[in-house]
Amino acid sequence: MELKNKVAVVTGVSKGIGFATIKTLLKQGVIVVGWGRSAPKIDHPNCFFYETDVSNYDSVLSSYNKTIEDHGEDIDILINNAGLGFESAFEETTLEQWHSMFETNVHGIFYCSRLMVPQMKKNDQGHIINIGSIAGNTGIPFMAGYCGTKHAVTGISHAMYKELREFGIKVTCIYPGSVKTNFFDDIASVEANDNMMMPQDIASTILHVLQTPDNYHHIDIEVRPLRPKGKRR
């Protein structure tokens, strides 16, 4: 896809992967619309922000309506990045934590995508990128809820791509391993460190996927740090 002047909606943009992604897309001339609870600290004429809680359909619908009012109906790219996770023993996971993870990580993808697919179908093109996790491909102790949501992201992404490919719409799921972000602030067993991948690394993968030829479709991309524990001594 030629990216200049394309409109991209990115969720969860205040920091981490989302923030790195909007900076990367802006360099390519993309008109970036951020949806999130907190605004990114960036000043750019092509960057716009609408306060959005992706776990709440009314909030998503409001931001969608504002987006098409300000930028037109032709949203070319959707990057479902917003997500959260909690660490706890299975039986100690609270109902609030469980519901919060599913409402943000799973329902949010559905809410955002279902609004944009109809116009993408009319345009016979579009690209939806869902940020999954290696947690969606393997179980992690004390992360059952988060793993469950990311397993769901995988299944949703695979069904979406098979359903939408005939309409010229690409759906890609990216599965990062550990990335140095604020995600680990509330994960007591892991401390973010420089041996992890960096948010800009994931943003570079997103850019690569978006720039592929029209008939070239990445379905799943798993990325991990090469030396998660650093160099051997």
Rank of each mutant, 00 (worst) to 15 (best):
N80K: 06
T104E: 06
I131E: 00
A159V: 03
K121M: 14
V171H: 03
K121V: 11
M143I: 01
E87W: 03
I129E: 12
I174R: 03
S178A: 15
G83S: 07
G139H: 07
S88K: 15
G168Y: 08
F90L: 12
G139W: 08
L115P: 00
S178K: 12
C173V: 10
G155R: 01
S157M: 09
S113D: 00
T154D: 15
R114Q: 04
K150Y: 13
V179Q: 02
F142L: 11
I156W: 13
A82G: 06
P141S: 08
F110I: 01
D124F: 11
T138C: 02
H151P: 01
G139I: 05
A144Y: 02
I156L: 14
A82T: 01
W98C: 12
G126M: 06
N80G: 03
F102T: 08
V179E: 02
C173M: 08
I79L: 03
H107T: 06
Y146P: 02
T154S: 15
S113Q: 01
L84C: 09
Q119P: 04
E92W: 07
L95N: 13
K162M: 09
I174H: 03
F167H: 15
T172W: 05
A82P: 02
Q119M: 11
E96A: 08
I131K: 01
G85M: 14
N130F: 05
G83Y: 05
H107P: 00
Y161C: 03
G139P: 11
T104I: 11
